[in-house]
Design a protein around this nucleic acid. Structure first.
Length: 582
RNA sequence: GCCUUGGUAGCUCAGCUGGAUAGAGCACUCGCCUCCUAAGCGAGGGGUCGUAGGUUCAAAUCCUGCCCAGGGCGCCA
């Protein structure tokens, strides 16, 4: 319907251009669903936009445009209003056709082909596997998964990917943390390092190792702590303290250090995977950072950069000339001790992404990484790919509030609220919905008490309740052994104002979905579903659906059936269930 | 200092590719269950859209300055 109108307007402008009244087609012919019913169903501001190039008053131009518009059976009335808006009133018959369209297409209604089957690589969460996911990661997970659903709905082919940071110093710290807890289980009384991972899960992993291997990995404490400098809280440096422990453990344990590490990361990653899958977040690929080193890709990327002289040596380190790409300073790729930085892995990882032949590459990052955008794009360019294909979406961290005050969190100290805790307390539906209700780049105050409350304060229930109510109506119809046949519905019987409002709301769904997907803004869909629910609840209170008149009953049942279908389709994209009763 | 995001109702936030009287939820006041689930509905109060300029027929929306707040600016990951 909207498309047809838009085409009509474009054709009309084209005709006026050929008549010499207008000069050129505006870049975007806007046709909007009106907010106010007195403005009809659709409105365009085109006369206001073009009045300057036509050198006449907007209202006069609007008249010319309206006169030029081809007659069309679905338009009831066209009005020129206000400063020069053109308002279109659609015939009831054409408007209500959306109801049967929805019913016919069912779960497929709303999907489109604007993505043209283009391949998209979507990377998100990618939290370091040093502990369970916390509520901050949850936002990225919910956002990324919803973007994935949205893009698929509008015709993109999406692969979801999680980048596993399973290489580097953090992993050594993890292994040492586990090992020290293991030594405690062996009966040693030791001082746990400030910089170690403190969480209970570390002790749990140590316990597993102890239970399966006994004291097989036991080494004397004075060996592990030999020549290790003082820890931070002892007046020393916590970094060099833990580095000393890592060095000793590696040399004394040999291959066993690696074995302990493997148990640790498998346990933690396994937890992350099941956590996410219970949250309805599914990845096609888990990409290992270590694999970039093992396959030599990391090394070969650096060689390429050397050959093309994008990097240089200074102070024993290898620097990338990111300033050539607008960065404020150059960045280190290989440290003076020979270790690759995180940036080096990122270069190789993104190179690999581009080599895999995607049309679009999207990263969902925490907003604290925004400073890395320019250097990653620089590396892509330096390695001969187009950085424009890479889109980086930033998600702000959520501040947690409990009992009115902010919850402090730190992964290292283990004092955080896990995603799993949140899901158990709030439920997956409320968590998924709550996370995407705010614009992603916006700071978000996540009130745990509010999210936990099972009351109407939780907006997700409002939508689910609308769905459940519709299901309940159909249960009633079933009990009364009514024959329901949507193909027989006479939709022209839907003459109430509220009914027309619902039809109008239903006809908005497609454009909301597209806009939500293209702008990567799931909250648009969430707000829409809430608005649709509002209309339905009003309808429910104002009118009885199952009435004496069979034809009217059928028409109304068809309308609410279509409404239910949209609620289901929309909620499913948001990863929220649609319960049949509450 | 530089980069970045924000400052809209008492609170949490939509609206921001400029458009017709600035919206929602919560909270507050008043109504609505012999009737398909009251986790609902209806009505009402509540706003200098941070601030000062600028662009425009039209600015919450675009531009600039300023004020306030969050985040980022490592040979950490």
């Amino acid at each position: 319907m909207k498309d047809q109108l838009q085409d009509l307007i474009k054709k009309c402008i084209q005709d006026l251009i050929s008549k010499g009244i207008l000069i050129e087609m505006p870049p975007n012919v806007r046709l909007d669903h009106t907010k106010d019913n007195s403005h009809g169903d659709y409105a365009t501001n085109i006369a206001l936009m073009l009045s300057k190039q036509a050198k006449m008053k907007p209202v006069d131009l609007a008249k010319i445009i309206v006169d030029q518009l081809e007659e069309s059976s679905f338009i009831n009335k066209i009005e020129i209003a206000g400063p020069g808006f053109i308002n279109f009133f659609i015939s009831d018959e054409s408007s209500s056709s959306v109801v049967s369209e929805i019913i016919d297409q069912g779960a497929l209604y709303g999907s489109s082909e604007i993505g043209q089957g283009k391949k998209v690589l979507l990377e998100y969460v990618s939290a370091n596997p040093t502990g369970p996911l916390h509520v901050g990661h949850g936002r990225g997970a919910a956002y990324g998964a919803t973007i994935s659903n949205l893009l698929r709905a509008v015709g993109f082919k999406v692969d979801n990917e999680y980048y596993v940071n399973d290489a580097g110093r953090q992993m050594d710290i993890l292994a040492v943390s586990i090992y020290l807890r293991y030594l405690s289980l062996c009966g040693e009384n030791l001082r746990f390092p400030d910089n170690g991972y403190q969480g209970q899960y570390i002790k749990d992993i140590a316990q597993v190792i102890y239970d399966t291997s006994g004291e097989e990995f036991y080494k004397k404490l004075d060996l592990i702590f030999a020549n290790v400098s003082k820890d931070g809280s002892e007046g020393g440096d916590k970094e060099s303290h833990i580095d000393g422990l890592i060095e000793n453990s590696k040399s004394i344990l040999g291959d066993s250090f690696r074995a302990i590490f493997q148990v640790g990361i498998e346990s933690i990653l396994g937890g992350i995977k099941s956590d996410l899958s219970e949250f309805g977040v599914v990845f096609e690929k888990w990409f290992s950072e270590q694999s970039l080193i093992d396959t030599g890709l990391s090394e070969s990327c650096i060689s390429k950069l050397k050959e093309s002289q994008k990097v240089y040596e200074k102070d024993g380190a290898l620097w990338f000339k990111t300033t050539n790409y607008g960065d404020e300073k150059d960045r280190v790729v290989v440290r003076d001790n020979g270790n690759h930085t995180y940036f080096a892995s990122d270069i190789a990882y993104h190179f690999d992404k581009f080599e895999r032949g995607y049309d679009k590459i999207i990263n969902v990052w925490g907003a604290d990484h925004h400073g890395y955008i320019s250097r990653v794009k620089a590396s892509i360019d330096a390695l001969g790919h187009s950085p424009d294909k890479l889109e980086i979406l930033l998600v702000q961290f959520a501040n947690l509030y409990r009992g009115g005050s902010k919850v402090q969190m730190s992964t290292r100290s283990g004092s955080f609220v896990t995603l799993e805790d949140l899901r158990k307390e709030v439920g997956n539906d409320a968590a998924r919905f709550f996370y995407i209700l705010r614009k992603s780049e916006q700071h978000m105050d996540f009130d745990l008490d509010l999210a936990k409350s099972k009351t109407n304060e939780n907006p997700v229930y409002y939508i689910q309740y609308a769905h459940a109510r519709i299901c309940s109506v159909f249960r009633q119809a079933n009990e009364k052994e009514m024959e329901v046949d949507h193909s027989q519905a006479n939709l022209s019987l839907l003459t109430e104002g509220i009914e027309k409002n619902i039809i109008k709301e239903l006809s908005r769904y497609k454009s909301v979905l597209e806009s939500s997907a293209i702008q990567y803004e799931p909250h648009q869909l969430a707000y829409y579903l809430r608005d649709l629910s509002t209309h339905f609840h009003s309808y429910y209170n104002a009118c009885k659906f199952i009435v004496e008149d069979k034809h009217l009953t059928q028409a109304r049942l068809s309308l609410i059936h279509a409404t239910r279908q949209i609620l289901i389709n929309g909620l499913s994209i948001l990863g929220v269930s649609a319960p049949e009763s509450m």
